[in-house]
Design a binder for these strands. Sequence first.
DNA 1: AGTCTAGTAAATGTCTGACATTTAGACAAG
DNA 2: CTTGTCTAAATGTCAGACATTTACTAGACT
Lengths: 239, 239
Amino acid sequence: MTLDALPPHQGGAEQLARLLAQALLAGHWQPGDVFPRELDIGAHFNVSRNQVRNALTSLTAAGLLERTAGRGTLVREMGDWHLLDPLMSEWMTGLINLDPQLVKAIYAFRFSAEPVVAGLAAQAAQAEDIERLESAFTGMEKTASSVEARAEHAEYDVAFHDATYRASHNLVWRQMGHLLRPSIMALIHRSQDRTDTLDDSLTRHRQVLDAIRSRNANAAESAAREVLRRTAIDLGIVS
Amino acid sequence: MTLDALPPHQGGAEQLARLLAQALLAGHWQPGDVFPRELDIGAHFNVSRNQVRNALTSLTAAGLLERTAGRGTLVREMGDWHLLDPLMSEWMTGLINLDPQLVKAIYAFRFSAEPVVAGLAAQAAQAEDIERLESAFTGMEKTASSVEARAEHAEYDVAFHDATYRASHNLVWRQMGHLLRPSIMALIHRSQDRTDTLDDSLTRHRQVLDAIRSRNANAAESAAREVLRRTAIDLGIVS
DNA sequence: AGTCTAGTAAATGTCTGACATTTAGACAAG
DNA sequence: CTTGTCTAAATGTCAGACATTTACTAGACT
């Protein structure tokens, strides 16, 4: 794989890092491949070696690359990626070509984890957590009917689930909220036209909200499972 | 807080990063405090500005610091830390002064998550996963009796739980295995002298292993919960 | 007195060129 | 066939100058 297929870029090292990271996430290189040399990257994009090094430092920290003096830069396999690094979430968001295997893995994680998180949220939620959940839910309601607001709807969807993670009041669970945006965005094209399933989704989200509000952990748990079940079935995670 | 209290260092930027990170994790600076300037750090440790910058880049990527040109470097609060960054796990491991609140948060996470993971593992485990679990378990058995082997025992303990996460065959869950080492190491001094509780621990670990081996998800789930319950009670996570 | 503006100091960010170190491979001597 | 050495090529490091951002200060003007 060469750099020729990549679009030009403008801006700092962050932009360059995003560009390269998204190319890696899209699978333009195979694990074990040698990544282009610093000087070649710099020449191709007309940036200094510094910027290239800064960008590659980010990708290395995210587990995408492995660099050794003398040998060069190698592409690591998916199992080594730091999927929970916020930078990774940012890079994954808005990436159309995200590997279906990865989308499935993230969703399978959510399907197993979010019921537990919702249960914890029902136990630990404070007033401000409930407010965040309600605000996100009403946003989802407002944007449910119109088709052109589906991007906005997805944002409220993200906000709702993120509010659930935050309501657990656990520092570790809260970190995983970062995975929500790429996960939800990657599935935005799935069953987008069926308004009946959207009504269904709203109803189930409401049940999660109600269960947390009434501090019913078991109800929150099963409600959260129901929210995710349809897509889990579609993805072949559960039958 | 000044740098004077920190021990000297030798080695590259990684050592320096570890040193500074552990000082931050131990709470030597308060959130919002200004961190020493690059040049001061370099002067104090006799390293080049490059090394300092590389070290600070790591700490920034881990969410420990926030840097802005002109203003300087600020210390971020615990809620912003990237607890799931493998570097953080490495830094936390072997740190005696780890914030009790953090230890509790990580353990609370494990107490809620690991039963689910064990259930998944029972469904997805392959032969090699079982082998890893068995190998770790026999290691735990061998090192259970002698007192001087407690460090080695802890390593087998880490290996056992990590094998559980890996056996789930989910990329996201697998990442969280990194948290195990600091969590287990931080609690190594807790009830270390009670051989009866150690026998108890072994028995319960065996039940997890057996449940996964016989693909009984429900049994694995409750067995994993029992493994963690005693410490969870000690930490005040559950009553 | 108050407010806007220009200027200044101080911090991080960037660039550049040279050099150091590590690695893989070639090639010859033993 | 092994060992050792040399060479080329890649990343890592250094040092110094400069750029940019930020906060603060001192005047000028109303």
